[in-house]
Simulated scan of single mutants.
Amino acid sequence: MPHKIPESVLVVIHTADLEVLLIERADRPGFWQSVTGSLDRVDEPLLETATRELFEETGIRADGERIVLRDWHLSNVYEIYQTWRHRYAPGVTHNTEHVFSVCVPRDIPITLSPREHLRYEWLPLLAAADRCFSSSNAEAVLQLPRHVGRQS
């Protein structure tokens, strides 16, 4: 298996009322997050990565018309958790994460990838931020009102 590319996307899924969808990792029960995923290839456009990961992890298809991914033009660099470093080339310790969001109807069908996630839950903004195991994910959830043009 080739090493993961240390560049990824984070996609915060939310409703117009700012409820946030979180998914529980299958490989780490109790670890809740938004959609995340690494680039498949170094030259993969970030929007393509976000679109692919959104569909693979939730079954939500961003069509660019009804369901539109919003690129925040925000990147976070963070240290890769020790438990996942074996997936990267030797010596790689940090990842660059690019943040996106997508507004969806609350009743949109969610189809989780059972290999990756156990269950999902819609939560109010602050509860979702508290549930995220990743600090950059929690911060993105808290920044959501500003990025969608709403005040908290």
Score class of each variant (00 low, 15 high):
Cys103Glu: 14
Thr51His: 08
Val77Met: 13
Gln151Gly: 01
Val102Cys: 05
Leu126Gln: 14
Arg131Gly: 08
Leu54Trp: 01
Val92Gln: 10
Pro105Trp: 05
Tyr88His: 02
Leu142Gln: 14
Asp107Trp: 08
Arg85Leu: 12
Val35Phe: 09
Phe31Trp: 13
Asn76Val: 14
Val99Ser: 09
Trp72Asn: 02
Asp63Pro: 00
Ile108Ala: 09
Glu19Cys: 04
Glu19Trp: 06
Cys103Val: 15
Leu126Asn: 13
Gln82Asp: 11
Thr49Asp: 06
Leu112Val: 11
Glu121Trp: 01
Trp122Lys: 12
Gly64Phe: 04
Val102Asn: 05
Leu112Asn: 08
Leu144Asp: 05
Leu10Gly: 09
Val99Ile: 15
Ala127Phe: 09
Asp107Gly: 05
His86Gln: 11
Phe100Lys: 06
Glu65His: 13
Ala129Leu: 12
Glu121Cys: 12
Glu56Thr: 07
Arg85Lys: 13
Asp107Leu: 02
Phe55Gly: 04
Pro45Ala: 07
Arg66Val: 00
Arg119Ser: 07
Gly91Ser: 00
Asn137Asp: 15
Val12Glu: 01
Leu47Tyr: 04
Glu7Asn: 15
Leu46Asn: 03
Leu123Cys: 10
Ile80Arg: 08
Val9Leu: 03
Asp17Gln: 05
Leu123Lys: 15
Val9Asp: 03
Ala128Met: 04
Ala26Met: 02
Thr49Met: 00
Glu19Asp: 08
Ala138Asp: 07
Val12Gln: 02
Ser75His: 14
Pro29Asp: 01
Val11Tyr: 11
His14Trp: 13
Tyr120Val: 02
His98Glu: 10
Asp130Ala: 14
Gly64Leu: 04
His3Leu: 04
Ala62Phe: 02
Ala129Val: 13
Ser34Gln: 00
Ser38Ile: 00
Thr51Glu: 00
Ile13Ser: 01
Asp17Ala: 10
Ala89Cys: 12
Thr96Val: 15
Asn76Asp: 15
Pro2Cys: 06
Ser101Thr: 04
Thr83Met: 06
His73Ser: 06
Pro105Arg: 10
Pro114Cys: 07
Ile5Cys: 14
Pro124His: 13
Asp43Trp: 08
Asn137Leu: 03
Glu57Pro: 01
Ile67Gln: 09
Ala138Ile: 01
Pro114Phe: 08
His98Arg: 14
Leu126Ile: 07
Gln82Thr: 11
Gln82Val: 01
Leu22Gly: 00
Ile23Val: 07
Thr49Leu: 04
Gln143Gly: 05
Arg52Ile: 05
Phe133Met: 06
Leu21Arg: 03
His3Arg: 08
Arg87Leu: 05
His147Lys: 09
Ser101Gly: 10
Glu116Arg: 10
Gln82Asn: 08
Ala129Arg: 13
Leu47Asp: 04
Val68Gln: 05
Pro2Thr: 14
Val102Glu: 01
Arg66Glu: 10
Val141Lys: 07
Val42Ile: 09
Asn95Met: 14
Pro109Trp: 09
Arg61Pro: 01
Ala16Asp: 12
Arg52Phe: 08
His98Ser: 09
Glu97Gly: 12
Asp43Ser: 13
His86Gly: 12
Thr111Asp: 05
Val42Ser: 08
Asp63Met: 07
Glu57Val: 00
